[in-house]
Write a protein that binds this DNA or RNA. Sequence first.
DNA 1: AACATCCGGGAAAACGTTTGAGTAAATAAA
DNA 2: TTTATTTACTCAAACGTTTTCCCGGATGTT
Lengths: 346, 346
Amino acid sequence: MTLKDIAKEAGVSISTVSRVINQKGASAASKEVQDRVWEIVRRTGYSPNIAARDLKSGNSTSAKKPTRSIACIFARTEDPMKDIFFSTLARGLEEEAFHHNYIVKHLITFVDIDNPAEFRHITGNRVDGAAVLGRCNRQMLSFLKKHFNNVVYSGLNTINAKYDQIICDGYQAAGSVMEKFFELGHTRIAYIGDTKEENRYEGYCASLSAKKIPLRRELVVHAPMTTEGGYQGALRLLEKSRDFTAIFCSNDTVAIGALRALQEKGLKIPGDVSLISIDDIDVVQYITPLLTTIRIPIEELGKMAAKILIDRIEGGHRLPMKILLPFSLVWRETCAEPGFHKRENG
Amino acid sequence: MTLKDIAKEAGVSISTVSRVINQKGASAASKEVQDRVWEIVRRTGYSPNIAARDLKSGNSTSAKKPTRSIACIFARTEDPMKDIFFSTLARGLEEEAFHHNYIVKHLITFVDIDNPAEFRHITGNRVDGAAVLGRCNRQMLSFLKKHFNNVVYSGLNTINAKYDQIICDGYQAAGSVMEKFFELGHTRIAYIGDTKEENRYEGYCASLSAKKIPLRRELVVHAPMTTEGGYQGALRLLEKSRDFTAIFCSNDTVAIGALRALQEKGLKIPGDVSLISIDDIDVVQYITPLLTTIRIPIEELGKMAAKILIDRIEGGHRLPMKILLPFSLVWRETCAEPGFHKRENG
DNA sequence: AACATCCGGGAAAACGTTTGAGTAAATAAA
DNA sequence: TTTATTTACTCAAACGTTTTCCCGGATGTT
């Protein structure tokens, strides 16, 4: 079904049909013609060819007419638990976008964010801007910038200063975690999580070095930031060394996995080992023991990302901006002073 | 940047540029011309206008040329925990689709699945078919059918037989839950969850009636299927009556919320009340007590949905098919015989 | 020498819209 | 009555591709 078909059937010109459908101005068409056209539209289930429409109205080129839609890009992990973080972020984004009358298109890369095939997938979309969530390398970023023009990053890592970024600083958050550990008297602190291009790991290292505590390789295990990663990571850690009183997990998901491994090995949390992580995703309130973690205002991060992206799209600002949202440690049950258990029992 | 611009700059015709870029056959162009064109393409960062391309190649109309992409449609809830179910389903879908060299576009409706504005959002996409997840009314379904032609539903509810559906029967699952309760000696069984157009509630009612147990209105509470819904639902249930020994929660998310409410009110699970739910989402293995629940093969559901949808797209079958995947009760810690505690202690 | 074949390349017709310019009739203003 | 204005349309030109048909020349075959 095309406008031509409708026009023929209604006995009017294509332009008339187009104008009826798009309600252009007052002198659209007579009531009679309008009714005839709409009847056909409804009966045949006609819906306009968006490619043609976009092509004509310039929606397809660089940035003539806005689409009032933004892309939300992130890489799907293999871990449902980890998706909670992204879901929450995405919800914030959607909510704020909706509030501005924007639509968000979810461009979820499946296999690999570096995969050129994924690029094609992403390129296929026409949006006014893109928000990229979680993790993103320079290559991807510059690609997105070139293609979508307006880009904002949201997550825990600081990225190249030429992009808008709304972040909760993982480096500083890690610092807070370590400081809390130090404050409680811990010095032998292990790390489980990603160690590559990861703010949080850098924060861990920096905190140790600021305290003149040497970094012990046997206390850091590189693991994917998933429950399985946390589980296996903790197991590997225990194999390498037991000489630690605290573990810093790079996120809640890792912590949840690690917790399970530790418990299976008969360790008491926080009796034998204290544990702090980062994120405060929704589920941590329902697991036992309740995770002591750094609260990231995830939904706010998403909302702010939408706000900044839309502001940029609409020309509100031109200079790249970096917005920092605050975090806070929420004290729950997985953390105590070293030797806490013994003293309590003795 | 358009083909015309490149053509002008390279001193060749538009057709030649197009051919070079699309690598058509052997007689594309001389090495010399190819190099010249590619140089300009790279330098200017040209990328083809997809609207024009789609329009021309018929990708925009009904179903001439396949896009090798499918839509994944579901309604975003306000609860991150509930999203786990959909994430898992979506991952299965993505994985299988990827395996068939299809791309999945995520069309997440935000506000309301019945909202016409959402329809526009969805209509904007060109895909070969659509998989709709979780919940879906007839109106939406027929709309999708009309627009996307190939539609498959996946979830726990049986839908109109004229659509492909790959489901895990919530009605029967509810029956299994109730049977288990009966087997353990429970007769006063409460229900928390959605009661409208919901298989699971129907299963609850049917099981009671099969056992000649009258349905007691004070033991069923209608609640949104979220943690908050489960929490509030359990609270309301306790206000209305305490005369029950077991609760059937319509999904894990509700169960997790309910569990919290019950524990806050000082009830022992499973000592004072037994609890069974449905889904077996990933997190239930990490909460305390471990949920006894019906295991739905969520990821399989997604995979099968992709498989069937793609088969239909490629003309593999024409008749609507209903595929049932098996479920199984996984026994964990929230369920026991009534009076279990007393006997154990005495 | 005559013929077919192949190869690099061009002209132009679509694809389904939107929209500015134009027109004939009806109505309003002079 | 004539002239302006509105109403209700139609025509046709774009938008940026892809693709079919064409052509001139080089090469190969009788």
